[in-house]
């Protein structure tokens, strides 16, 4: 390769490599291409200095511009929070029942409530707020503690049977069987009566007696017609909705030794604005009064 070998036909220098008489031409790169290549090298060096580039054991070189995608995320979150703050301030200043009067604010509250619900409430009430046995369905039209936005707000803020909160909803149904307040056959009679008024099939012979026992023992909290008393947390028994389960057997079990659900008071865990948003959201699920 000490001497340049020029290909006769093309007039181009060869590399000196030869395979079965075929020689490789050493065609120079186009000038423009070469310059772009050099420019890329210069750019790459500059980029390595300016931007995070070299991986180290803990992290990487910072780069003189101090760029970090994490910092961008933090800024973005702060920006989003600033944008939300306008609404949150407004919600703080607005009575919970009046939020729905402002269409834009109501939309924000429902969206915010929806996301807060998914974090805090779905564990008991379900992802669709459909509830489970012992955990009320929030889509339907029966409300143990009342279904207006204000009542829902109070329930969320103070919870139910949460001893840590002074204003919590408290209702305790006596264990009529376990504490021997009623005889076994009396309990069965009441259960039959309750089933009959909620549209189920019951033993007709027991209903009359059951109705009397109901008036004496149960009507104080559940209402004379078993329509429920929200102030006392006595659920309606004359309809198709059961917190635990319908049917004579399940109702008998509940009268014998009642189960009581507990809901924490959320005002200590969440901001007031969040609780308000939750109330607006839950109220919008279709059963709000």
């Amino acid at each position: 390769m000490s001497k340049k070998e020029i290909d006769e036909i093309t007039g181009t220098e060869t590399t000196g490599h030869e395979w079965d008489g075929i020689k490789e031409l050493n065609t120079p790169l186009p000038r423009w291409w070469l310059w772009i290549f050099y420019a890329c090298i210069v750019w790459a060096i500059g980029y390595m200095i300016a931007m995070p580039a070299w991986p180290l054991i803990n992290g990487a070189t910072k780069g003189v511009l101090g760029y970090a995608s994490r910092a961008n995320v933090v800024t973005d979150i702060e920006k989003a929070k600033d944008a939300q703050q306008v609404f949150l301030t407004k919600i703080d200043e607005t009575e919970v029942g009046d939020i729905v009067k402002d269409e834009e604010l109501a939309r924000f509250a429902r969206a915010g409530g929806s996301s807060a619900f998914k974090v805090n409430c779905v564990q008991c009430h379900g992802a669709g707020a459909q509830g489970f046995a012992g955990y009320p369905n929030l889509n339907d039209d029966e409300w143990i503690w009342g279904g207006t936005i204000d009542e829902i707000y109070i329930t969320i803020a103070h919870g139910a049977r949460d001893n840590a909160d002074d204003d919590t909803h408290i209702s305790e149904m006596p264990a009529y069987g376990a504490d021997e307040l009623l005889e076994k056959d009396e309990i069965i009679s009441v259960a039959n009566y309750v089933v009959s008024i909620s549209g189920g099939e019951a033993d007709a012979a027991l209903i009359g007696n059951g109705a009397e026992i109901f008036l004496d023992n149960c009507a104080a909290c559940h209402g004379e017609k078993a329509e429920g008393v929200a102030e006392l947390g006595g659920p309606a028994l004359n309809n198709a909705i059961w917190l635990y389960q319908g049917g004579i057997e399940a109702i008998t079990t509940q009268i014998n030794a009642p189960k009581h659900g507990v809901m924490p008071a959320w005002r200590t865990k969440l901001s007031d604005a969040t609780v308000k948003q939750l109330a607006v959201y839950v109220h919008s699920l279709g059963g709000g009064e």
Binding site: G128, N137, D140, D141, A236, N239, A240, I241
Partner: peptide, 9 residues
């Protein structure tokens, strides 16, 4: 979710 809701009536 919920696929349906049973109402009180």
């Amino acid at each position: 979710n919920p696929r349906f809701v049973m109402l009180s009536d």
